[in-house]
Design a protein around this nucleic acid. Sequence first.
DNA 1: ATAGTTTGCTGATAAATATCAATGGTCAGA
DNA 2: TCTGACCATTGATATTTATCAGCAAACTAT
Lengths: 230, 230
Amino acid sequence: MTKFSHSLNCIDCNCKSIIFKKLTDAELELINQNRFEVNFKAGEIMFKQGTPSPHFLCITKGLAKLYIEGYGKNLILGLVKPVEYIFGPGVYVDNRHHYSAAAVEDSSACMVDVNTYKHLIRENPDFAEEFIKRVSLQSIFNFDQFVSLTQKQMHGRIADALFYLSDVIYCKNPFDMTISRQDLADISGMSKESAIRILKEFKEEGILTVEGNNVHILNPAQLKKISETG
Amino acid sequence: MTKFSHSLNCIDCNCKSIIFKKLTDAELELINQNRFEVNFKAGEIMFKQGTPSPHFLCITKGLAKLYIEGYGKNLILGLVKPVEYIFGPGVYVDNRHHYSAAAVEDSSACMVDVNTYKHLIRENPDFAEEFIKRVSLQSIFNFDQFVSLTQKQMHGRIADALFYLSDVIYCKNPFDMTISRQDLADISGMSKESAIRILKEFKEEGILTVEGNNVHILNPAQLKKISETG
DNA sequence: ATAGTTTGCTGATAAATATCAATGGTCAGA
DNA sequence: TCTGACCATTGATATTTATCAGCAAACTAT
């Protein structure tokens, strides 16, 4: 038995994104008719920066990373877990993806036709406001990340990344870090080696334990302090 | 004779933001009844991060900077010139400003009641789409800046900032840099001293001339190359 | 004009961070 | 079981960048 049953239709789907609570059954049915589900193995690319963007993706299983491909390095904008939508900013501008997405774990995504979405945004003001709110929340999150990456030193940035993983993504404290060390570095805007070294320092100072991919934050207060003092 | 006449009403205002082209005269009149204009002297704060956000601002004269206050340092998200709106992401989330704004030059701003705006977004789907497009463009711009600041070295970041000033803000090539060196540093995410030093290096290499606040990019091709090679 | 304040500039130094090179571990597939 | 590929780790080193201190220049307000 799977945790979610989402294959049949959108109305009964018990994993539906909270953005849909503003839609009527008829509107949900319209979404249902213009969607399909895709499975991705860990590591597979969901969409690529620069390509056309005919669908909004909703992650229904697994974990995805959103990243901008720079020069050699990648910058991870965030991770997306069930049941969250990826609302790329290109849809209302140039119909292109402005970042790439890849599956970190084995994942599934529901792909909804962009035009159906746009239609509902025009027709249903509550839905439109909810959409704008989602996009705004995304912006605010990006601002926080922006400040962290440009104004804090490496220790503070790793601290921020660890809180993000523990509090927002995995939502537990001893957590299995399904992302790689390179991904952690790409979230924190540093080299892989630096990320590993700082993890080791935190371990030596008794702030956390690291065993393979399992991380346990023992002293959140001290980690918080490191985050705040840069 | 002033360049813009915008004091009387919104319908005839020849400096109105292009976002208004989707509005009827009646809708513009509604905006007109729920706005007022304010003048700011250079250096004055227009609104402060964390405070309530009851208005959208449209810069009608001068130049404003949007910046996030970090620890000691500021991060400038962008500059806003006439006739552009500042659509802060807090309006649909928590009614708070998530960054501060200050006048760089003597400036004027038209302040429009947020609820009037929200009302029109609900009523006029074309206007709503235009609004979403503006917000999306802002996001895309921030992504570019994000990559520049986190993945490029100082020379590339200053190059990007110079192109931004020349191409987007002042829109001419020998341009008078009305922002301070500290502002240039805050745009580029580095210390003031570093920004000054790199400007000096570019000058010595014949890429540009700097006389006081007047900057002339002599070799845009080489500057572009510096921007691209990080 | 003059004192005081801010802004721009420079050099020396220290700190932060990346790069390079090498090694061991793990896992999938022949 | 072996082999290759990839990932994690570590140490040594080089590079990048910030900080600090001092000084000149420009602007403000007596």
